[in-house]
Design a protein around this nucleic acid. Structure first.
Lengths: 340, 340
DNA sequence: AATATATGTTTAATCGATTAAACGAAAAAA
DNA sequence: TTTTTTCGTTTAATCGATTAAACATATATT
């Protein structure tokens, strides 16, 4: 059996005062009410007994748990793991704990997590929402539960969010590819209605258009989340084996790039000699890739910190206006898109 | 303001019965006490109001939070992120939530986290302990707070733990290096008193000894956690630039291997032509390394699942004996140690 | 000396759920 | 008909902390 924990009651008994007095002493700011002599004895006893306040009881009374629910696609994905770490640090600085859950991009799992965490009385959420989770987000709004979306957002809903300008990021990347002598450029994205993905594709189209380049149907590929490996193969095969094979590819996520580059290797395509590459996000994996990769770098630290900041503001004052933060990604230019 | 949540009180009022009756109805197993008619009305009302029990209140009453505290070195390290994900899934299957924290290998941070999570009334801990955290572990034992150590353990303390046989893993790896024509083998580890690291080094020594090979002082390097990059450089320089340069290196962690391989690249050493390599753990990063890496694969899924299983057993019955689980790692042989 | 004010401490309600014990009414046993 | 059981429901205590309000004392004011 766990040694029963020391409570205010135990201190009160030991010192010979009421529980209330002990409470007043130990909640600092109210100390003035209590005589110095008694306060000293209470503090001494608290130290001797190694009193640790029961946060559960505090939470029940106050309705606050100082806990943030963090819902990501998959904590074992380096991109999300990195964000999780940043959020953890930032939250902890402000006295908040993080409870996380992985949705695996499934709306149902996401809903289960939300329900679960609401029952655990989290004070708010930071969510990278899955496709089709609009109703869940609306529910949170209706219930006035504070939350901030990250990485993705639903433009049709007014919510807090912190994301990058995906359109611009993709646009700049493709524009760069064009500038470095590429005309036949393809894009590989996930097959999803999620706005950030659409924006990345949109950015691609606009950059092509702005540069007066035609886009062939075979150059734009959307791949199923749940079968990346096969999807990538088919997509790349189709991009390369037609009368207008692409000479450059924009991968819209880290995972897509990893799988794509592996397959290009199998096909004995060399980067950048045979094909140019730009990818979203970084990854340890790329460190060992023979050709330094041009990629779109998201300001993860700012995203995480801002999300926590907005959430905590919102928790303290739920009447605040929702904030929409659009950050800029940076195009890090390396060898992989240089074919001159 | 957050819409105030529906409580038993609200249902009771709506139905016109006491709170106790509602509680009896909704706690299923006791349903028999209540008349079917009333039970039906209560259930209906609960559904209509979308009642969600307040877990905080439940926890206060029961003393159980169904929450596990997970303390790792760094959630953004893929090795730990992977374990975290496994633990999350396994815990969630059994109705537990995970609260995590990163210790950054610092005993002080670890202690803060433990205190913090105890106040949050976690039911137990899964911990990858840091160097010098023995007292913290003893404290948990004294307080009879259930916990399971993973990845590392303190042999001088009787605790639950789930680790791999590090000695054996290192032994087999080095033995394999010897069998593939290497005689001059070095090892790079962290400079720490943590037992798992010592065991890995010990395994190296024993394998060398068993094969009748002498170990030069310059071949065994221990590197500071907090300055890997520089440490690796110095270590490798010293291993290579002496009258008995090594022809093979065992890296005792993933991160050491990543930094080490990068530096070897800088030095224009080719694997396995100029040097053989074996590493602990896998990593996405290795996928793009030009030479497939021989590595020691830990059974992460089993480790995570077993740790959760033992912890929950221990939570349910704290009088159970501590369990020490030693799992076997697997040596995955690839090209990086094949110099014949 | 009588009254007002300040000071220090306790009482008791509260958060939301659980549950032993008490209670009242109906059904069964005498 | 009276007594005993059974059944269904409510009362009230509890978990640990907070905090308004009540209550004593002591001190200050008139």
């Amino acid at each position: 059996m766990q040694k029963k924990k020391v409570s205010l009651k135990d201190i009160a008994k030991k010192v010979g005062v009421s529980i209330a007095t002990v409470s007043y002493v130990l909640s600092k700011d109210k100390e003035s009410k209590v005589s110095l002599a008694v306060a000293a004895r209470v503090k001494k006893a608290a130290k001797e007994l190694n009193y640790q306040p029961n946060q559960i009881a505090k939470s029940l009374k106050s309705g606050k748990t100082f806990t943030i629910g963090l819902i990501l696609a998959d904590i074992s994905n380096p991109f999300f793991a990195h964000i999780a770490r940043i959020i953890e640090d930032e939250a902890s600085k402000k006295g908040y704990t993080v409870i996380f859950g992985s949705s695996d991009e499934k709306a149902e799992k996401s809903w289960d997590l939300i329900q679960f965490l609401i029952n655990r009385q989290v004070d708010g959420f930071i969510i990278a929402p899955t496709e089709g989770s609009q109703e869940q987000i609306k529910y949170l709004k209706n219930q006035n539960i504070p939350f901030v979306l990250i990485d993705r957002c639903f433009p049709e809903l007014v919510t807090n969010y912190v994301i990058i300008d995906n359109f611009k990021a993709a646009f700049e990347a493709v524009d760069r590819l064009v500038k470095t002598a590429n005309k036949k450029i393809g894009v590989i994205a996930y097959s999803t209605t999620l706005h950030h993905m659409k924006e990345r594709i949109h950015g691609y189209y606009e950059a092509m258009h702005k540069n007066g380049l035609e886009v062939k149907k075979e150059w734009v590929k959307e791949i199923d989340f749940f079968d990346i490996k096969e999807g990538i193969k088919t997509a790349i095969d189709e991009m390369l084996m037609n009368k207008n094979p692409v000479k450059a590819i924009l991968f819209t996520t880290n995972s897509l790039a990893i799988h794509g580059l592996k397959y290009l290797d199998e096909l004995n395509y060399r980067v950048p000699q045979n094909i140019s590459i730009v990818s979203f996000d970084e990854g340890e994996a790329f460190d060992f890739y023979y050709c330094p990769l041009t990629h779109i770098k998201q300001p993860l630290l700012e995203i995480g910190r801002t999300a926590v900041k907005i959430l905590i503001e919102q928790i303290s004052d739920p009447s605040l206006e929702e904030q929409q933060i659009l950050m800029n990604a940076t195009l890090i230019v390396r060898k992989s898109c240089d074919r001159r």
